[in-house]
Design a binder for these strands. Structure first.
Length: 240
DNA sequence: GCATTAACACGTA
DNA sequence: TACGTGTTAATGC
């Protein structure tokens, strides 16, 4: 739980007492779109899947939530209901911070505010990146970008460089068949971007994964000066 | 053409 | 034993 360490010791212990931990099984649903937000959730162990509402809008984007991922702050901050569905891909351990505790931290602790603000910012960037991924035709590129999202160093700092995930689970996240995912993984491994093991994937070059399937190398000079002046290099991920 | 499903052999937990 | 992987063949858009 990366945010726990920004709190002073006394507050940390207080939060720890109010923290709830639950085991969920594959297929279990943690929060449903439209349900009032009661917890700020975090993944301790396992893998969750976030999907946008399947009712109102047609678009259904998926995102994997590995350990150290925290979510639900958007709904809590607005005192509204969850806007996404989150379910367990496999049996997982999930932590929950009660809404009242979350609110108390927001109102009293600057460092916690910074953490949440940064989290929201990164998620916004990842959300726009996800929209871009949807338009990608190349399956290999989609797998690559999804892996880069899973291994996001700020959003999922606890993941590190290697993660337990099956090719079937990855296929479910990306929206491809297991066989096609396998083919994509082999290709990415051939480019020395990842290393594939039994039930596990190592990321060797995350930046390389973000470039897969891109037509031009972004870090090049003026296409035309009338457009973005501040965009020296287009790195959708590394915004400070 | 390309991705999907189905089916298989094989190695691993 | 149950599961994950790598591969091939048949099928569909």
């Amino acid at each position: 739980m990366p945010w726990l360490h920004v709190l002073p010791a006394a507050e940390r212990h207080r939060v720890a007492e109010q923290l709830q931990v639950a085991e969920v099984q594959a297929g279990d649903v943690l929060c449903k779109h439209g349900r009032p937000a009661t917890f700020w959730f975090g993944v301790i162990e396992g893998l969750l899947k976030l999907s946008s509402n399947g009712s109102a809008d047609d678009v259904v984007t998926f995102s994997g939530l590995p350990p150290s991922a925290w979510f639900g702050e958007g709904a809590l901050l607005k005192h509204e209901s969850y806007r996404c569905n989150v379910g367990a891909v496999r049996s997982s351990k999930v932590a929950g911070v009660p809404a009242a505790t979350f609110e108390r931290l927001i109102e009293n602790n600057i460092a916690f505010n910074h953490y949440v603000m940064n989290q929201l910012n990164e998620r916004l960037l990842q959300s726009t990146a996800a929209r871009e991924v949807e338009r990608l035709a190349d399956p290999n590129a989609r797998v690559a970008r999804s892996l880069a999202a899973l291994f996001h160093p700020v959003l999922h700092p606890g993941v590190g460089t290697s993660m337990r995930i099956t090719q079937q689970e990855l296929g479910a996240l990306v929206g491809l068949s297991r066989q096609r995912v396998n083919e994509a993984l082999q290709a990415l491994q051939g480019e020395l971007l990842i290393r594939v093991e039994y039930g596990r994937i190592h990321v060797v070059d995350r930046h390389g994964l973000l470039i897969v399937g891109r037509k031009r190398d972004p870090p090049h000079e003026d296409d035309r000066s009338s457009r973005s002046s501040t965009a020296g290099k287009r790195e959708p991920d590394a915004a400070a």
